[in-house]
Nucleic acid binder design. Structure first.
Length: 679
DNA sequence: CAGGCTGTTC
């Protein structure tokens, strides 16, 4: 007997580390012939050894043939499936176990609930949790933590919290599950509260807890707390692994501190695809499209295969840049290598729409099999920026018929589409529906669209009343919307108040200064015009020169304002002069009020003609065949004079010209534009 | 046997 026990122990310890399938089979045969397996001895070890060496089918065969299945064999089988991510098999196996007489234990419940978590199967998870309580495992820390994670992953943090509060024993895993859960559901403040409670109970956080806290800091934009967390971790001797470093990197990148993020990235001795992706996305989200694309290329050249997320970052950069050529090439790269999932599909639709091809965007949209809220919102917004308000509305109505509930972003896109298309009554109507039927509290962005819509239609007083009726302090965007309405409809009384508010609220783009200045010029208040110019210089606005991008014959060409550096400069100039002549004959009068510099009238006219969008258009005309559609992307807002001029140009050259600016698309065709005015 | 990094709309 003693020898047998010793032998079994030796066999077990050998199986734990054995990597050789043939040896496992030999031991299997030995145990079978000597009769040990018949009472279940060593079966669990054999099962996990088989599974660990990639022979899960052999493991299952052995398990099926066991005459006496003990709980450790069941659990070994469950764990083997779990390791291979066969979550449905785990749940099935658990159910067949429940049919028999063997009692599940803590591991059984822990693993099975984890499988439900991976499948986001809240229903089965709840059922198994009830079983666990019935079997006396309601106070088990492992089972408890896996239930916390189940609720957290399914977004049910209130349920998780009530289980958490009733747990009699908690360890660092239980606490960190709560912290991570709150962060991932957008409740960063509560995540930090949980951490403080944990500290009060005398528990130290570990790496996982820190990771959650870093993400919390990223979300609430508290970089100060984030940095002090960094100091704390260094003092306590935490190992800064890739995960933690990537989280710090991401925190800085998300908050626009790309210099710090990139410094951190360069200093990392160990980087993975995720670290690359985090920085690429950070650049793309903050408008540094060029840096994002450069990094994507650098990543490949160093042998890192871009994954889904880094490519989504690349697509985002393309849509910021307005470059369909780059976007298409990334699309092609993706199709050759990866499966397109919903997030990627959405990014592609957004990219095509923002790069000027609403048709291609719709094509992709029609080919999607399932539609989540972001996909709907993206398509609605795409129609909006292209000035197709009716299409946006019709899509929105289709959405209402289905089972995806519109959210705040849906209405933001819808209302903005209404305002870009001048659908005044519809805009008012849906704003009301949003509040009354969908119980969505209007946010600033909703008010901005509505004010823009109403003011644009000429009801400036009403727009003013709407702003005054808001429950919170109106931001600059609202006064900008009001002011542009005042400018269009020459309401100088309200306009002057709006203009003053705009200046008080420190505009951060040259476009806004130019709007204010145009307003005062229109009111013939020249002293104010001069003041605005001064304020703009003081704010350092001239640092951002306007540029336009145009793609011709598969190449991207960028033009700055007054760009003289192009090899075809002389020819471009020729086209521009020819166009100007014909435009004048057709009745075009330069709107020199759009020039904010205090110079001679004749110089102003020269400056208007040298705007980057005009140079880009002339270049496009020069280098493409008659009738070719031109797509130009401008980094600022398109200027009011250019908006007029391009209408004429579209007639002269008989082409469709699409100009995308920071906010939307202007489709010029046969002398008119899809947008009623430039702003 | 339970918890960890990056991603799409406004």
């Amino acid at each position: 007997m003693i020898v047998e026990k010793w032998l079994l122990k030796q066999i077990k310890s050998f199986l734990v580390t054995c990597k050789d399938g043939a040896s496992i089979s030999k031991i299997h045969a030995l145990l079978t012939t000597s009769g040990f397996l018949s009472n279940g001895n060593s079966a669990a070890q054999l099962i996990s050894s088989y599974a660990r060496t990639g022979h899960i089918n052999l493991a299952h065969k052995l398990f099926d043939n066991l005459p006496n299945k003990r709980i450790d064999s069941w659990n070994a089988m469950l764990i083997s499936y779990s390791r291979e991510n066969y979550h449905l098999e785990v749940i099935k196996l658990y159910e067949s176990m429940r049919m028999g007489t063997v009692k599940p234990d803590s591991s059984t419940f822990t693993i099975t609930i984890k499988a439900c978590t991976s499948l986001f199967d809240l229903e089965s998870g709840n059922e198994i949790w009830r079983n666990a309580v019935q079997c006396g495992y309601g106070n088990d820390m492992f089972v408890g933590s896996s239930v916390l994670n189940l609720y957290a992953k399914c977004g049910k943090m209130d349920e998780a919290f009530s289980v958490f509060e009733r747990m009699s024993r908690k360890d660092v895993v239980s606490w960190s599950t709560m912290i991570t859960g709150f962060v991932k559901t957008g409740r960063a403040i509560e995540a930090i509260d949980v951490y403080r409670k944990m500290q009060k109970e005398g528990l130290e956080g570990d790496g996982v807890v820190m990771l959650g806290l870093i993400q919390a800091c990223a979300e609430i934009e508290n970089l100060k707390m984030g940095s002090s967390l960094n100091g704390y971790m260094i003092r306590r001797g935490f190992r800064m692994d890739v995960l933690v470093q990537t989280s710090f990197l991401d925190m800085y990148a998300k908050n626009g501190k790309l210099d710090i993020a990139s410094g951190l990235f360069r200093s990392m001795s160990c980087k993975n695809v995720v670290s690359w992706s985090a920085l690429i996305s950070g650049y793309a989200q903050n408008g540094y499209a060029g840096n994002a694309l450069e990094l994507l290329i650098e990543m490949q050249s160093l042998g890192f295969e871009p994954d889904l997320v880094s490519l989504i970052g690349g697509l985002l950069a393309c849509s910021r840049f307005g470059s369909p050529i780059l976007g298409r090439s990334i699309h092609g790269y993706i199709v050759r290598r990866l499966d397109v999932n919903q997030v990627l599909g959405t990014a592609l639709i957004d990219m095509y729409a923002k790069c000027g091809s609403i048709t291609r965007a719709r094509l992709l949209y029609d080919n999607t099999s399932s539609r989540d809220i972001i996909l709907w919102n993206t398509m609605i917004s795409s129609y909006g920026i292209h000035g197709q308000g009716e299409e946006a509305l019709s899509l929105f109505n289709q959405m209402r018929e289905g089972d995806t509930k519109p959210d705040h972003a849906t209405f933001a896109s819808l209302l903005s589409a209404m305002s870009h298309s001048g659908l005044v009554e519809e805009g008012r109507y849906w704003f009301d529906v949003m509040i009354k039927e969908y119980k969505i509290e209007p946010m600033e962005k909703h008010y901005v669209s509505l004010v823009d819509l109403i003011a644009r239609s000429g009801q400036v007083e009403e727009a003013q009343i709407l702003i005054d009726s808001m429950k919170y302090e109106p931001g600059i965007a609202l006064y900008v919307a009001l002011l542009s309405g005042c400018l269009n409809h020459k309401n100088y009384l309200i306009g002057e108040l709006a203009a003053k508010r705009v200046l008080e609220l420190n505009p951060d783009t040259a476009g806004i200064y130019s709007l204010v200045s145009n307003f005062f010029a229109s009111a013939k208040k020249w002293d104010e015009v001069a003041l605005v110019r001064k304020a703009m210089r003081a704010a350092g606005m001239k640092k951002f020169p306007g540029y336009s991008v145009v793609e011709v014959n598969g190449k991207i060409h960028t033009f700055l304002v007054e760009d003289k550096g192009h090899p075809q400069h002389e020819k471009i100039l020729g086209i521009m002069e020819e166009l100007e002549c014909k435009m004048r004959d057709m009745g075009y009068v330069p709107k020199t009020e759009f020039v904010l510099h205090n110079v001679e009238e004749e110089v102003k006219i020269r400056m208007l003609c040298n705007h980057s969008e005009r140079i880009a258009i002339a270049f496009g005309i020069l280098n493409t065949g008659p009738g070719t559609r031109l797509v130009i992307t401008k980094n600022l807002r398109v200027c009011g004079d250019c908006h007029e001029a391009i209408k004429f140009i579209s007639v002269i050259v008989n082409r469709e010209i699409v100009v995308r600016d920071m906010k939307r698309f202007h489709h010029f065709k046969n002398g008119s534009c899809s947008c009623s005015d430039y702003w």
